[in-house]
Write a protein that binds this DNA or RNA. Structure first.
Length: 352
DNA sequence: CGTGTTTGACCTGCGC
DNA sequence: GCGCAGGTCAAACACG
């Protein structure tokens, strides 16, 4: 069995080297011989300013990312990149790419203070602090209804209503909250990477100072509040920046979930399913895991991502692989030492 | 026919 | 108040 598992991992078509560095998780992957996709994924960068640095070689990247880290007051010891790819990585993440992304992410996590959080009219921003992810679709409907209502209200607005309007506006500013977000920088030829969930595109916008548009996707699962934005870096067009917003409140689609389960559950290796296509590259597995349980990867990070605390969290936890399980499964990999680096203990926050 | 994409219009927030 | 940019809506369209 152990050999099977080893072979399983060795035969990941793209996996060559996986590292977790400061602010980033990336897989340095082999280009080519990918028969089932035109995607040539080389690197995944996961951005999180709260992380300490871990790489397979325990070296730290330097450059503007450390400057940014220092600007955040984070203690980091960076050394020079040791490989061309590291150097390339440093150049990739510096200046124009990482900082805006990090800024955007950090700025998007706005924690409100009040206990009353009215749904703002015509606002696309849902209240994540309530952890009532199921209600987001309702919010979406509210949004639509409120858009129409707004028009009516605008048309019939009289002087006496100005005060309440201003009041609502003030409340809105005061209580604005956003769902947790996390972003990946992925070197890929295709914009929309497979992450295990089904997405419906609901918009596309031109990005200022960039020839590449930004696409907006929503999870197609009913009542799932998760959205994601996908855009290409104008600095390096080979890099795709994917930003997830919110937490899935449902299983992975069954076929894909089965695939992930097979990846992480050795007992399933002996019962191949015709539904299972070619094994995913390891970085895709990581991507899928992170997409599925960002709070477990991020913990109480600077993103402000925390595990859900109410009843919906129970459902959530039932549907994801726990860090303990993940750690157990990772031990089957021949690259366990590598993976330990990739998934340090602080990364795998223990269940309460 | 169901599902997903495209795209122009619209809304909101923000800076000046 | 105005203009701009980001984000969303929804009708039209494409596709299997």
């Amino acid at each position: 069995m152990a050999d099977e598992i080893r072979d399983f991992y060795y035969h990941q078509p793209f996996q060559e080297d996986i590292r977790l560095g400061y602010n980033n998780l990336y897989s340095q992957s082999r280009v080519g011989d990918n028969n089932d996709s035109s995607s040539v994924v080389q690197n995944i960068h996961m951005l999180d300013p709260s992380f300490m640095s871990y790489t397979t070689t325990h070296e730290f990247l330097h450059g503007s990312s450390s400057d940014y880290a220092n600007s955040l007051g984070k203690p980091f010891g960076f050394s020079a990149p040791s490989t061309p790819s590291d150097q390339a990585f440093s150049s990739i993440i510096k200046d124009h790419d990482v900082k805006p992304v990090l800024d955007a992410i950090n700025n998007d996590v706005i924690v409100g203070g009040g206990s009353e959080t009215p749904v703002t009219p015509n606002s696309s921003i849902s209240n994540s602090s309530s952890n009532d992810a199921v209600g987001d679709d309702q919010d979406s409907n509210k949004t639509t209804n409120n858009t129409k209502k707004d028009k009516e209200v605008k048309e019939s607005l009289e002087d006496g209503e100005d005060a309440s309007k201003k009041e609502n506006k003030a409340k809105k500013k005061e209580k604005t909250q956003r769902p947790p977000k996390f972003a990946f920088m992925t070197k890929s030829e295709v914009d929309h990477l497979e992450d295990g969930y089904r997405w419906r595109k609901y918009g596309q916008k031109a990005v200022k100072n960039s020839p590449y548009p930004r696409s907006y996707y929503r999870c197609t699962s009913q009542k799932c509040p998760v959205k994601k934005r996908v855009e290409r870096s104008y600095q390096d067009p080979s890099i795709v920046i994917t930003t997830y917003e919110g937490q899935h409140n449902h299983h992975l689609p069954s076929t894909l979930r089965g695939n992930v389960a097979r990846m992480l559950n050795p007992s399933m290796l002996s019962t191949p399913s015709p539904l299972i296509a070619a094994p995913r590259a390891f970085h895709e597995q990581v991507l899928m895991n992170m997409a599925q349980m960002p709070h477990q990867f991020y913990g109480s990070s600077a993103f402000g991502i925390n595990p859900p605390t109410n009843s919906s969290s129970n459902m959530y936890h039932q549907n994801v692989i726990t860090p303990h399980e993940l750690q157990q499964q990772l031990q089957y990999s021949p690259d366990y030492g590598l993976l330990q680096d990739m998934v340090p203990s602080m990364f795998l926050k223990q269940e309460p």
